[in-house]
Simulated assay, not measured.
Amino acid sequence: MDKDERQELIKQLESANPRNKAYFGIFQYGGGSDESYIKANVQGLELFAATMLKAVSQFDQACAKNETIDIAQYTDDWVNKDSTTSIDYIEPILEEIEKPKLEYKQTTLDKLVPMGCFSVLILAVISGIVGFVTIVNWFLSLYNQSQ
């Protein structure tokens, strides 16, 4: 998307969504940041999208000056003041950051589970064989008693 298309989209989003009807907030319902959610209506989400697009427009200039992009100035009147999380600025980066790969280390329990499942399977097969032999012997004993 080029700069002109982006500016046109920002204008469309802002003109179609009156700020007095927009609602947007980021809240935390538990003890950590992984327990967060956004509470918003359509107008609030679209105004937030316009705010992010404005940040994109300032991205190159902020990177060149090694500055942050202040987005709080665009969200003063339509973001819920009781939000537990607020995003005031964006810190732009040029290089791509590689996400750390989480290595899974096998625990003792992980090693025991397949052995336990195999043991239960063997026990079920042995129980099935013993039960089958017992039923056959029972039928044979009934047959022998009848003669």
Rank of each mutant, 00 (worst) to 15 (best):
D4S: 13
E5G: 10
Q7H: 06
Q7G: 01
E8L: 13
E8D: 11
L9N: 04
K11F: 07
E14Q: 05
E14M: 02
S15M: 07
S15W: 04
P18N: 10
R19E: 10
K21N: 13
K21V: 07
F24S: 00
F24L: 03
G25R: 04
F27L: 09
F27M: 10
Q28S: 07
Y29A: 05
G32L: 07
E35F: 02
I38M: 06
K39V: 05
A40W: 03
V42Y: 14
V42W: 11
Q43M: 11
G44D: 02
G44R: 01
G44I: 00
L45Q: 10
L53M: 08
V56L: 12
V56H: 06
S57H: 02
F59C: 06
D60N: 12
D60F: 03
D60W: 02
D60E: 15
D60I: 05
Q61M: 11
C63V: 15
E67Q: 14
T68P: 01
I69Y: 01
D70R: 01
W78T: 01
V79D: 00
S86C: 07
D88S: 10
I90W: 01
E91P: 00
P92V: 02
I93A: 06
I93G: 03
L94F: 08
L94C: 09
I97V: 15
E98T: 13
K99W: 09
P100G: 05
K101V: 15
E103C: 04
T107N: 02
T107C: 02
T107G: 05
P114Q: 00
P114W: 05
M115Q: 05
G116L: 06
V120L: 15
L121S: 15
G128L: 04
G128C: 06
F132W: 12
W138M: 10
W138D: 12
F139G: 05
F139S: 07
L140P: 02
N144V: 11
Q145D: 14
S146N: 13
S146A: 12
Q147F: 14
